[in-house]
């Protein structure tokens, strides 16, 4: 058995990082888009709160902090790190990838990490600019640490969800429509746009049990303190469960995909 080597994957991540860095226009417009959305959301919430003081017991400051942090998170979470799967299946280059002694899941994963790292650098300027538009509450360091952990698990769920979607390309060659749909559903039901605690109680129970909540809602509610320290275990546990579930689904889909490969053209 050959010993596992990290080197190739580190190289893939570096290559993805520098590749992303060459698309400067896209990086900057991404930043601009986030700030515009933040400004719009701030105006909407302020207007809504003018007529209804603190629905669900959430003050305006908290909701704006929620929105701002959600948008900052989206800089990382909206990257579809495994889009490369589709491109390579459609162009048929997946054939040459498969002829290399590499774990393809890790190949796509490290490419995604490389992209994520580049975009992570955007968080700093985005945060500075966001602070010019809104006030963002900062919780205690301990809470912040739990938030970071929860964000990481949420990142995994999001990544594996994307991976599963993109792997469908092995059968359909094109997954844009499915992905767009899943993206909208996950943004809405994941609490990126409206906190899930604003949903009617019945719907809330359903939505909180869905995997999408693990992506935005759980880390954000930890950040705000709505999820209290006594609830951390349950919240993180549920998130981790979803991450594991998606990992299992991804593994099954990947296995099936490898057996089902139809290389385009050639």
């Amino acid at each position: 058995m050959v010993r596992f080597r990290f080197e190739p994957y580190v190289e893939f991540a570096k290559k993805a990082f520098s590749r992303e860095a060459t698309y400067r226009m896209e990086v900057f417009s991404n930043l601009g888009g986030v700030l515009i959305r933040l400004f719009i959301m701030k105006s909407v919430w302020t207007a809504l709160y003018a007529h209804n003081a603190a629905p669900a017991g959430v003050p305006l400051d908290a909701i704006i902090t929620y929105t701002a942090v959600a948008l900052l998170m989206s800089i990382i979470l909206e990257i579809d790190g495994t889009r490369l799967i589709q491109t390579r299946v459609r162009e048929g280059t997946i054939a040459t990838d498969l002829m290399k002694p590499i774990n393809l899941v890790l190949f796509f994963f490290s490419d995604g990490i490389g992209q994520t790292l580049l975009h992570a650098f955007l968080i700093v300027p985005a945060l500075v600019l966001a602070l010019a538009i809104v006030h963002i509450d900062v919780p205690a360091p301990a809470t912040l640490a739990v938030f970071a952990l929860s964000f990481l698990v949420g990142y995994m769920v999001n990544f594996l969800l994307n991976f599963t979607m993109n792997a469908i390309a092995f059968w359909t060659l094109e997954t844009h429509a499915i992905q767009l749909m899943v993206r909208w559903v996950s943004d809405l039901l994941g609490g990126q746009i409206v906190p899930l605690i604003f949903f009617p109680p019945v719907l809330q129970n359903v939505v909180l049990a869905l995997p999408f909540a693990a992506i935005y809602s759980t880390p954000l509610l930890i950040y705000l303190g709505t999820i209290t320290p006594e609830q951390y275990g349950a919240a993180l546990g549920l998130q981790a469960m979803w991450a594991l579930a998606f990992a299992a689904v991804s593994a099954v889909i990947w296995r099936a995909a490898q057996r089902h490969i139809v290389i385009q053209g050639g």
Partner: peptide, 29 residues
């Protein structure tokens, strides 16, 4: 992957070099 270590492949119609990288960097990768 074990098989991949034993084989090499050249496609006339499809390059396995990395498009944006200098040739020598493809070799390095």
């Amino acid at each position: 992957t074990a098989n991949a270590r034993n084989i090499g492949v050249v496609f006339g119609q499809r390059s396995q070099l990395y498009w944006d990288l200098p040739l020598v960097e493809s070799f390095e990768l």
